[in-house]
Amino acid sequence: MTKLADITHKIRSKNSGPFWITIDIFCTDAAEFERALIAADSGRVAHALGISVSDLKRYDLPDVRVVKFSFPRPIVQGTRFDRDMHGASFANLIAELDVTP
């Protein structure tokens, strides 16, 4: 099995304020970025995050070789059912996406 983390440089997630999470997929070079553009399919990413694809904002940024996703937090930061105050673990769901060709 090939995971998205295996074919990219670094994947991180973080709060963007109390109501949003943002995920950055960093690529080492242009070829890696081209592969990531396809592998990080918006539908699969939304499914892994458990959200609707219409809630997912996507930015393909060739200058910095980053695919970025932002989405409203499924659970608002710090409310009783929130598990991750800083939103750091959402990246793992994307890093572990099965992208076996």
């Binding site: 709060n15 904002k57 980053v66």
Partner: peptide
């Protein structure tokens, strides 16, 4: 140029 331009991504839902 990379470390500076990539910083717009940090904690920003919209990097632009």
């Amino acid at each position: 140029p990379y470390t500076v331009s990539a910083h717009m991504l940090y904690e920003n839902s919209n990097p632009l």
